[in-house]
C-alpha cells in the first residue's frame, strides 16, 4: 500500500528548540491517524509543514508521490489536503451557510462576480454537508455566535467542502465540554467515512485516541518514537511514562 502523505527526514528547529530531527511518517489512504506526544513536541508543526505554512530546514514531504514542500497553502489545498484548526478559522461576521458557500464555490473555482450567493450550484452539496455534521439548524446564524462545539463541526464541514482526500485536524475537540466530546467526534468520524476522507489528528485526550484512531504515532523529542495500533502503543510502558503520564 502506498502512502498518501509521505514525510521523510523532516528537520526543523525554532531557535534552539528542535521540533523535528529526522521525522519520517506515512499517512495511508483510509487512515485515522492520531499524533500524540508531550506538549510542545512539534505535533502541530507537522500539520503546518504538510499544509505549506512552514518550511522545514531539511527533509521531503510528498503527497501522492508529488513533492509539496515549498508549495503555498492554497496550492496544497487545491491538491487535496485540507486543514481544520485548533481555533476554528471561520468568517465570524458571515452566516454558517455563507461560510460554506464561499468555501465550496472556491473549491469549484467558480468566478461569477454577480451570481447570487443563494443560487450557486454548490448549494445542494453545502446543505448536505451541514446536515451531515448536524449543523443544518444553525445554517443561518453568524459563525461568530455559535457555541464552541458547533463551531468545531462547522469548521470540519468547511474543510470537507474543499473536497479533500486528507483532512488534518488540530485537537478537534479541544475547548469543548467533555459531555459533548464524543457526540462531536462520532458525528465527525461518520462524516469522514461518508466522504471517504483520510484523517490525521493531533490529540491529547487518550480516550479519544483509543476510541477513534486506527493508528497512533508518538511524537517525542523530535522523532517518531513509536507507531502502531492504539491498543499496542497506548499500553507501551515507555509511552505511558513519557506521554500519557501515570
Amino acid at each position: 500500500m502506498s502512502a498518501l502523505i509521505s514525510a521523510r527526514g523532516i528537520a526543523i528547529r525554532f531557535g534552539g528548540v528542535v521540533a523535528a530531527d529526522g521525522v519520517s511518517l506515512d499517512v495511508f489512504a483510509g487512515d485515522h491517524l492520531a499524533i500524540i506526544g508531550p506538549n510542545g513536541a512539534g505535533k502541530t508543526t507537522f500539520l503546518n509543514i504538510c499544509t505549506g505554512y512552514l518550511k522545514p530546514q531539511g527533509g521531503t514531504v510528498q503527497f501522492k508521490g508529488r513533492d509539496i514542500l515549498g508549495s503555498s497553502p492554497r496550492a496544497i489545498t487545491r491538491l487535496g489536503i485540507a486543514r481544520a484548526f485548533q481555533i476554528p478559522q471561520l468568517f465570524l461576521e458571515q452566516s454558517v451557510r455563507e461560510n460554506m458557500l464561499i468555501a465550496a464555490a472556491s473549491q469549484a473555482r467558480r468566478f461569477a462576480p454577480f451570481a447570487r450567493l443563494a443560487d450557486i450550484p454548490e448549494r445542494g452539496d453545502v446543505e448536505h454537508l451541514l446536515a451531515l455534521v448536524d449543523c443544518a439548524d444553525v445554517a443561518d446564524r453568524k459563525a461568530g455566535e455559535l457555541p464552541e462545539g458547533k463551531r468545531k463541526l462547522v469548521d470540519i464541514a468547511l474543510a470537507l467542502a474543499l473536497k479533500p482526500e486528507v483532512l488534518l485536524m488540530d485537537e478537534p475537540t479541544s475547548g469543548v465540554a467533555s459531555s459533548e466530546k464524543f457526540t462531536i467526534m462520532d458525528t465527525l468520524v461518520a462524516a469522514l467515512r461518508e466522504r471517504a476522507v483520510t484523517a490525521v489528528f493531533v490529540e491529547h485526550d487518550m480516550e479519544m485516541v483509543s476510541r477513534y484512531a486506527n493508528r497512533v504515532a508518538v511524537w517525542s523529542a523530535g522523532t517518531i518514537s513509536r507507531q502502531g495500533p492504539p491498543a499496542e502503543v497506548l499500553n507501551d510502558p515507555e509511552v505511558v511514562r513519557t506521554v500519557i503520564g501515570g
Binding site: 489545498t77 465570524l92 464561499i102 473549491q107
Partner: peptide, 18 residues
C-alpha cells in the same frame, strides 16, 4: 461574500483556496 471574507481574515480565505 468573498470580499467580506477576505476583509475579515485574508489568511483563512487563502487557506480555503480563495
Amino acid at each position: 461574500a468573498v470580499i467580506v471574507a477576505v476583509t475579515e481574515d485574508r489568511e483563512a480565505a487563502t487557506a480555503i483556496g480563495i
